[in-house]
Design a protein around this nucleic acid. Sequence first.
DNA 1: AGCACGCCGACT
DNA 2: GTCGGCGTGCTC
Length: 737
Amino acid sequence: VREEAERYASVAVPVPVRREFTYTLGAELPDRPSLGSRVRVPFGARKVVGTIVGWEESPPEIAAKPIESVLPGGPVLDPAMLSLTKFVADYYLCSWGEAIEAALPPRGAATPRARREARRLAGARSDSLPGRAVAMRRALEAIPADGSGVAVHALTPAERRKIPALVGLGLVEVVEGIDRATPVLPERAGTPIEARPGPAPSAAQAAVLETLLPAVREGAYRAFLLYGATGSGKTEVYLRAAAECLRAGRSVLYLVPEIGLTPLLVSRIAERFSGTLAVLHSGLGRTERARTWDAVRRGERRFVVGARSAVFAPLTELGLVVVDEEQDGSYKQDERPRYHGRDVAVVRAREAGAVVLLGSATPSLESFQHARSGRYTLLALGGRFEERPLAKVRIVDMRKEYREVGEVRPLSREMIRALRECLGEEGQALVLRNRRGWAPSLYCPSCGNRISCTRCSLALTWHRSAGLLRCHACGLERPHPGACPTCHHDELREIGAGTEKVEDSLREALPGARIERMDRDTVRGRGAHEALLRRFDRGEIDVLVGTQMIAKGHDFPNVTLVGVLTADQSLGLPDFRAGERTFQLLTQVAGRAGRGSRPGRVVIQAFDPAHPILRDAASQDYETFFDREIAYRRVLRYPPLSALVQIVVEDERDARAATWAASIAAALRAEEQGRLLLTGPSPAPIERLRGRYRHQILVRSAGRMRLVGAVDRALRAVEGAVPRTAIVVDVDPTSVL
DNA sequence: AGCACGCCGACT
DNA sequence: GTCGGCGTGCTC
């Protein structure tokens, strides 16, 4: 007999409506489902799969519809995960259903094939198989005997092939229904914690571990910021903390930036934690991903390594969360829900009573500020291994170069000299030019027209090797017009130099050198990036030129020169993080020089060589940079000294977007109570994108929860007046472009 | 986000 | 006369 008080279920559905919906349990449901169960429900004219997130005592105003079915396999989200996804929904202003969707492995496309694979097997009865049917027995073993079921797509192809035979023998049953759940099995005993211990820690590492390991053993929430230069051995600290955590019987979550999940790191971790490791990354493919996720949920894997979305990995008994390269921009998701993986990681650790360990050579201002204020404990990892000296950095004044040479050339004389010396000494060089293509814009010297995108307010980039003009914002491609489209003058001038042109200049300046380019245009497919880096590592390439991609990846001991072209380009962007970004990129790429036995050299070309950010980067002085930058943020009330929400209102018609933005601003002003700082509405820095005009509002406040609450209420207030699809809300944006 | 309902142009 | 364009509004 059903309890009166639990007749109605509150269901979160994956639609961008920020509320839940109430359903009746329906008399034909066999058992009362638990919280976190996935349910198929009628929703408008269609059916959706939602999640039970609560119970209701009274019916809604509109007659509640019954839940159609409960997907087998029990609840997909435990109470901790329900709570975490609720936080994501409330804080990042998306629906609970959307947050849950982001926390689960991606569902297959709704193709007939995918639908077939979404079936699940249930009711496997063990025993009674002929002893010789090995393959069939293996397949059967993959299916839980308790009848809780397993998703068909979670089986290997070999196991899947045996399904018809097993069904024929009446040993298993195929249950239809789109579902990503599998049952939670009891933890497997005897999982190796650390198959092979790592090298003995250095003195600096030992000092850090002396603070860190007791905290891990204690098993309560604490946050640490591990601050140490590239090559100072942060990874070894993470791995030792992880081993300690596993020994204490708790699980480990290890987050890396998208690009940081290199085979090298994975194999290093796998070597030591093979038996208990699960790697979640975007390259897995749905099947493999679902299978890995299920293994984590069943408790067979207690150590998860992955990028942003792995922050939702279904680990229980979480004891340690590592966020490597915590400053990295790829932790922020640029679609709904626009959550920040690092920040969610900290919240998850706090809720789980776990240690969170953020690591960086150039911490985000947010994290370093927390370390200064005492919210995080700062762990400084000292200098580089073996006390190697920092690279020598030179800044070349490109205005002076231009005056002396009389024309604009991508490579200064000093840069060419340094490159020749480097190659002459059998060294390798990295050249950073953070702009792809041949020329960033084409302009007509006769009428002053600049060739820009028809859908965006941006110049088109000339990609000479592809023979195309490309918009880097929307991807639009056009052939080279030959003559000016406006005045038909037949000679368009190229402005600036992207990686393609730099590559060309390098070939000219360094005849015989083996030069390769690495940017999104040359490393398209999966693995291409890694392959190119490996060739460079093996010494098959002398000079590698590319975008910021070359600043990441692993160590190259033979690199003795790093060149940076137009280093101050990004400082001119109308974004409060421009300085921070530039400093991080320069420091990161400079750290690539001289990691082996030979001293490194860095040559930076800039038009404003005296810029303080460049000076800080040149001296690789993070704390001076931090103090300067934090002072600027304090004065202008930018994060981390204020919380910031960016609201962009978009529409094909400029005036309409402007009107809507104005009504949102009015609603915010009604909320403000003198505590909010409003900027705008004003046209966004990129005024038009994909044919839509954009108007921007920045809202700032000292208190983040107050800010999010006010924005939430204001957006609810304009519901009906402003279409939901026109509004993009970004809480804690990483950039306001 | 879907999906249906609803009101104005080129076609069997 | 209808098929269909996508603006508007709702989903327990």
